[in-house]
């Protein structure tokens, strides 16, 4: 199984294609609805260097605060990415992200953003919060914890052997679009709806 070490360069990303199974190593940043709004409100200079060349993970984790003040992830699976569809392409462009981790895939606007900027959509298996929490080796720091709460904050984490599948690549291919189309055709045939 191939490893992808983050942050990484555009060439590496361009070499990935739909259906590739990868294990991620290195630094990623979590962010969901509030984070995406905030990232587009202005240029968030503190977090920007951490996003550059890395990926944003659509995840609202369960986090444990230890007595000495450090944090660890208790459960950390992906959340539905579709909600970030209006913002994702802009966030990728503005912060130099090389990809997104989430579940359920994203739409045409993001697919075009991935193509334009050289980024990929990485699908983690939804609900596998324990498997993925084990792949989080360290919580480095956190942004906007007080303002957004635990699930919505931006957690900067180190991961190792973090399993994902490329379901949207930087060449305009989307496994989600393919499966959607094929399953629609099958259903229409089944129900006698096809023209």
């Amino acid at each position: 199984m191939a490893k992808l070490t983050l942050p990484c360069d555009v060439e590496t990303i361009r070499s990935l294609k739909v259906g590739d199974f990868l294990e991620l190593e290195g630094r990623i940043v979590t962010g969901r609805d509030s984070a995406h709004h905030w990232l587009l409100e202005g240029h968030q200079a503190d977090v920007a260097p951490l996003l550059q060349g890395s990926v944003i993970y659509h995840c609202g984790p369960v986090v444990k605060k230890h007595e000495d003040g450090h944090y660890s992830f208790v459960a950390a699976g992906p959340t539905t990415s579709a909600r970030e569809e209006p913002y994702q392409a802009d966030v990728i462009g503005r912060y130099g992200l090389r990809g997104v981790i989430g579940k359920g895939g994203m739409g045409a606007r993001t697919l075009k953003g991935l193509q334009d900027h050289g980024a990929v959509y990485l699908h983690a298996v939804g609900g596998t919060a324990q498997v993925l929490a084990q792949a989080v080796t360290k919580v480095e720091q956190v942004f906007m914890l007080k303002e957004f709460g635990v699930p919505e904050a931006l957690w900067v984490i180190s991961v190792s052997n973090f399993p994902v599948v490329v379901t949207m690549d930087s060449h305009g291919n989307s496994l989600h679009a393919e499966v959607e189309k094929a399953s629609r055709a099958k259903l229409e045939k089944l129900l006698g709806l096809s023209a």
Binding site: T79, G127, T128, V131, Q134, P163
Partner: peptide
Amino acid sequence: SLARKALDSILHNIELASGNWQPICQDT
């Protein structure tokens, strides 16, 4: 297949959660 890998991951996750009495999914 990707389908099989996903289900393997799901089954592994269920075992981990159950053994440690941790949430199966973070969205509870």
